[in-house]
Write a protein that binds this DNA or RNA. Structure first.
Lengths: 252, 252
DNA sequence: AAAAATAACTGGTCAGACCAGTAGGCAATA
DNA sequence: TATTGCCTACTGGTCTGACCAGTTATTTTT
């Protein structure tokens, strides 16, 4: 693989894995070049790639910043091309969940219908990891479980679309985990829902899987809406997820 | 604006405006640099940006090529690995329709629920244009009608996702128009479906709108599948859609 | 203290060089 | 003749080092 590509992936992973939070400034190009032992030209090409993907935005004389997906009370009108759309819309979270409901439902349906034994194995593995993980730690196992199901759908377009929403997804999952999991009843309900999704897919019951998966997302959405109205939310909008994440030292 | 950005936009416009068709080879980097009077580094940065958006894919020693099927993605994704997935997979068309069924259904649902009077006006206008257009001419009015409904959903994420699939969409719509509309019964059925969708949205009947919209996409999908099995398809896979497009001079 | 010049960052662009795949031509060989 | 194989002229991939252009904090002036 071309180095520039490789670098762009490494940087993206660095960002997603919590090394850098949305809005945060990335190291300077010269620093990155030195750090990663490549020329600055390569760094610039990699950064442009991330820019094209909407992962970062760059400001002349200031630096490159991890794209802020969502609103926030933040500073200037710094808009990223794609993500600009979301600015100032606190509804975004629910908009996303609205779409997730559809797509995850379809994914579960197709997964139950088309999953190969290898797929089932992967899903099982992801589910096991999800069960064993401390629900309070982080959102990744949750996301992985859903992801495994999506991939088992064998619909590249679906995979592509959900992959494109990955960043947003992570934030919502994160938000839901942070807000919902601390409440025991919630945690249990969600756990049961995951289990039922898992079972439906394994049992190859498409309709059931779809129904349950949709209900799951709907439940999360409704629960968060309720919490938000009570004013007891830990995270109101995904932006702050990074902050609470930084406060939680148990990240991988 | 930074030159690299500007260049990337100019190149993208060049591609989308029909100067370059999917799969087609772009001029070499050195050529572009000379032609556009910028350094090769700038060209490379611009190309990486397009790469990140999934507009092009680049092959060492061969050149850069307009990505078959997609622009962006967004991302997400974006990038050649995703696009590669689509190449040569005739199933892609149906994969896309599978997703469209969900998203268009949801869009219609939300549109019926949330559309403002302005939205309704726009939809009416698009529908009128669709009715008055010669069905054989091109797919744009069809796409515009669906688009108007999507925008009326007032879900930026949904708009974003479907926008990212725009080119794919155009191809499938185009394919369906090319294959289905020449057959009178099909044309009539589809016309009736559009009408029912339109009426359901205008009458603010979310459930009905969703059901009809989903059935519509499903119908198109099934019909095309059937045609393809009969071997009477004009366009089998989206890839060739561009070719037929070039052959049809009546494009806007 | 306020204003202006400065210095030390940051990204943006350029030029030219060289490495590394690819493809076509053309000669030497079997 | 047909095949092999090299050579060459493409293509993108990377590096270097320079200079331009915004941003910001510091330091000098006033």
């Amino acid at each position: 693989m071309a180095i520039a590509q490789d670098i762009s992936y490494r940087l993206e992973r660095l960002i997603l894995d919590g090394g850098l939070a949305p809005g945060q400034k990335m190291p300077s190009e010269r620093q990155l070049a030195t750090r990663l032992s490549v020329s600055r030209a390569i760094i610039r090409e990699a950064l442009h790639e991330l820019q094209g993907r909407g992962v970062i935005e760059t400001k002349h004389g200031k630096g490159s910043f991890v794209a802020r997906i969502v609103p926030g009370v933040e500073e200037d009108g710094g808009d990223s091309p794609l993500l600009q759309m979301f600015n100032g819309h606190p509804r975004t979270l629910y908009d996303l969940l609205e779409i997730r409901e559809q797509l995850e439902g379809q994914a579960a349906y197709l997964a139950a219908k088309r999953a190969t034994t290898l797929d089932l194995h992967r899903i099982t593995k992801a589910y096991a990891a999800l069960e064993q993980t401390d629900p309070l730690s982080n959102a990744r196992p949750d996301h992985n479980f859903h992801q495994a199901i999506v991939e088992a759908s064998h619909n590249p377009v679906l995979v592509h679309v959900l992959n494109g929403l990955k960043n947003l997804m992570l934030l919502t999952v994160q938000a839901s985990v942070a807000n919902l999991n601390p409440r025991e009843e919630m945690r249990n309900k969600i756990g049961r829902q995951h289990k039922r999704i898992y079972q439906a897919v394994m049992a190859r019951k498409p309709e059931a899987a779809k129904r349950i998966a949709m209900a799951h997302v709907r439940f999360v959405s409704d629960a968060m809406r309720e919490i938000e109205q009570q004013g007891t939310a830990i995270i109101r909008v995904p932006v702050n997820a990074s902050a609470s994440k930084a406060a939680a030292p148990q990240n991988a």
